[in-house]
Design a protein around this nucleic acid. Structure first.
Length: 110
DNA sequence: ATTGTGACGTTGC
DNA sequence: TGCAACGCCACAA
């Protein structure tokens, strides 16, 4: 497993409940801001990772649940987010920026 | 080594 | 304001 993937999973696991972040934010934190797509693709294998990777807390820059189809059921992602107190309407996170969790701002001081 | 793709992002029309 | 196209990097075949 490439470190890139590992880092992605690591950061995603660090996302506190009730918070969300974007693929681009993670990519930028990892230093590969242009590889935002890679982040999403990494999540593709997240299901095989342990422990559980809260991929539902990772959305696109629009706060849209673009990857919900990869959860097995298109409703799981929204359900999980709502369970954490995040309002989701039509795959769109309400107050996205308010729930936004920036990895470089939160754990940049290393 | 080359080609294709991807849960994104940004720019242009 | 909405949709289309391009770019970009890393990984799989």
């Amino acid at each position: 497993m490439s470190d890139f993937y590992n880092k992605v999973y690591e950061v995603v696991r660090l996302i506190p409940a009730g918070k969300v972040t974007s693929y681009g934010a993670i990519a930028t934190y990892l230093g590969t801001a242009q590889s935002s797509r890679m982040v999403g693709w990494a999540m593709n294998n997240a299901g095989s990772q342990f422990p559980y990777v809260p991929a539902h807390r990772v959305v696109n820059r629009n706060g849209l649940l673009t990857g919900k189809h990869h959860f097995g059921a298109p409703t799981i992602m929204q359900e999980l987010l709502e369970a954490e107190g995040i309002q989701v309407i039509d795959d769109q996170i309400i107050d996205f920026e308010k729930h936004f969790w920036n990895p470089m701002t939160e754990l940049d001081m290393e």
